[in-house]
Design a protein around this nucleic acid. Structure first.
Lengths: 118, 118
DNA sequence: CAGGATCCCTCTAGATACTG
DNA sequence: CAGTATCTAGAGGGATCCTG
């Protein structure tokens, strides 16, 4: 039986927490969008995030709100408008998003180079 | 029509690349495990990663190998043993994993505190 | 405008059994 | 030991229509 240290198990659990909180097809994009654009309304998000439908947008926004990552504000307008923004806590995800953006862009460069070499 | 800068679109694509490469229920755990333990054999990984079955372990290992993140080596033993390890390229994912582990463990502290306050 | 409700379908992942 | 093959359930997600 392999001995796995408690610190290691905690680390794995922590990583899985992040995975669960950012689960779903669109959550990372929603956070990345709000991170770049600041507060946005529902329809604006739908326009920014290419391909997302109303059902998924609503669902994932709600899940993010439940986890305290975004704040939903109903504006006093007619008709009603709703704005979404990252909470301070949601903003703490930026380092993760930034690392992903950084790695991903370098990866794109690498893939393009490999294709070019053929 | 909302104008989204090209840099922003590239950023979004890069983030989605990472999401796709790390897609699936177990990939992050596999990488995190190999990152902590170094090279490991198939059965060892299955023991370390709680709950994973042979089908998913094989499948996700293959996908990681295709993307150049891990290296698979068949050892000259009887019966055959196979070791897996991160490639140098796979190791470049560590900053992302580390950020996730860091955020996740702080998140766990926060959640526990919130429960305690009730 | 900002969603909710419904229907439908694909794809993921688990269980189990088997093999070189 | 290190997988493959097969079957299956169910979640995740899309399209469409509807509403305060």
């Amino acid at each position: 039986m392999e001995m796995i240290s408690n610190a290691c198990l905690q680390r794995f659990k922590a990583i899985n927490d992040v995975k669960d909180i950012l689960s779903g097809k669109w959550k990372i994009m929603i956070i990345a969008s709000l991170s770049v654009f600041g507060e946005k309304r529902y329809t604006e998000l739908q326009r920014i995030i290419d391909g997302i439908g109303t059902k998924m947008l609503s669902k994932e926004l709600q899940e993010l709100e439940i986890n305290g990552l975004i704040k939903r504000t109903v504006m006093d307008t007619k008709p009603v408008t709703v704005k979404y923004e990252l909470t301070a806590y949601g903003s703490t995800l930026k380092p993760i998003i930034d690392e992903m953006a950084s790695w991903g862009s370098q990866h794109r460069v690498k893939v393009i180079q490999e294709i070019a070499e053929k």
